[in-house]
């Protein structure tokens, strides 16, 4: 006789996934489709009528020098943030990997910045670098360097890059440290016996062996710099001076909520969405296959 496992049809499984589906619908699918819809509309100056215009908003964006400028700025900003915070964490992790005594304290202290809200992190840097009150600005002035990020675009950019990188160091550090501790001690010892000094070992053994982590973090940091730095920029420069720190996310906000160009702003956010989806796909592809060394 054949025995068959029989599942009675029941609503339970649907009920169990319902909250997740609801959350995705309410917080992702719905706003995303709204944005998509809005990106194809143009509203007149008084908000009285709207017109469906297909891809005109996108076309306008790619002909807009300001938007293209913001694109370049974002690319520079993100790469700078990723590079700065990753290289800094890599060096810190390299040192922490060698520390035995007090390692836990050291690690805990390094993790704190990550727990700080972006706006607060931004506020911290604003105070330190405030041209009239800031301690660092004061110090720089003593050295004969005039700091005023409220007037100078380059300095403003440098400041937001520093603030954004600083916040991400802790996160990168944790991943790098874990990756380094997964390298067998004896491999490092073998290199030492082969005659490699600490710097050479780091360069030729440790760094190549943590390359999968480097790749993973690169994607994470780029996504972070693209999106999560809104709070920092808002607190530190508000995109200024003269749009010098207006990166794409900030421009979405600025054009939409301040400039009230809803169609254009929606089109920008659709472009951002496509970017993040592309980055995520790349990441999943590679993580599944692991970077081969």
């Amino acid at each position: 006789m054949l025995k068959r496992v029989h599942f009675p049809a029941s609503a339970l499984p649907y009920l169990l996934v319902a909250p997740q589906v609801a959350i995705t619908l309410v917080f992702f699918i719905w706003p995303a489709s709204q944005a998509l819809w809005q990106s194809m509309l143009i509203e007149d100056a008084f908000g009285l009528s709207t017109e469906f215009v297909w891809f005109e908003n996108f076309q306008a964006l790619f002909e807009d020098d300001q938007y293209l400028g913001s694109f370049r700025r974002t690319a520079f900003f993100s790469l700078a943030v990723a590079f700065l915070s990753m290289s800094f964490s890599l060096v810190l992790a390299g040192f922490a990997d060698r520390v035995i005594r007090g390692a836990t304290t050291y690690r805990t202290l390094l993790i704190w910045p990550y727990a700080i809200a972006p706006v607060l992190a931004g506020a911290l840097w604003v105070f330190m670098f405030n041209p009239t009150l800031g301690i660092v600005a004061y110090g720089l002035e003593l050295l004969g360097y005039e700091w005023n990020h409220q007037l100078r675009g380059g300095q403003a950019m440098a400041l937001v890059i520093m603030a954004a990188s600083w916040k991400q160091v802790a996160y990168n550090f944790l991943f790098y440290l874990a990756a380094m501790q997964a390298i067998p001690r004896s491999v490092i010892e073998a290199a030492a016996i082969d005659g490699a000094g600490p710097i050479r070992r780091f360069r030729t053994i440790v760094f190549p062996l943590v390359s999968p982590t480097t790749f993973f973090l690169l994607v994470i940091n780029l996504v972070y710099a693209f999106f999560d730095t809104f709070g920092i920029i808002h607190a530190v420069t508000q995109g200024g001076p003269a749009n010098a720190t207006t990166i794409l996310v900030y421009k979405v906000y600025n054009d939409g909520f301040v400039g009230l160009d809803l169609g254009g702003s929606a089109a920008q956010s659709v472009i951002l969405m496509v970017l993040v989806i592309a980055l995520t796909v790349v990441q999943f592809r590679f993580i599944e296959r692991k970077v081969e060394y």
Partner: peptide
């Protein structure tokens, strides 16, 4: 004991 070859 574990050979400690450079994996990359």
């Amino acid at each position: 004991q574990n050979y400690a070859l450079y994996p990359h």
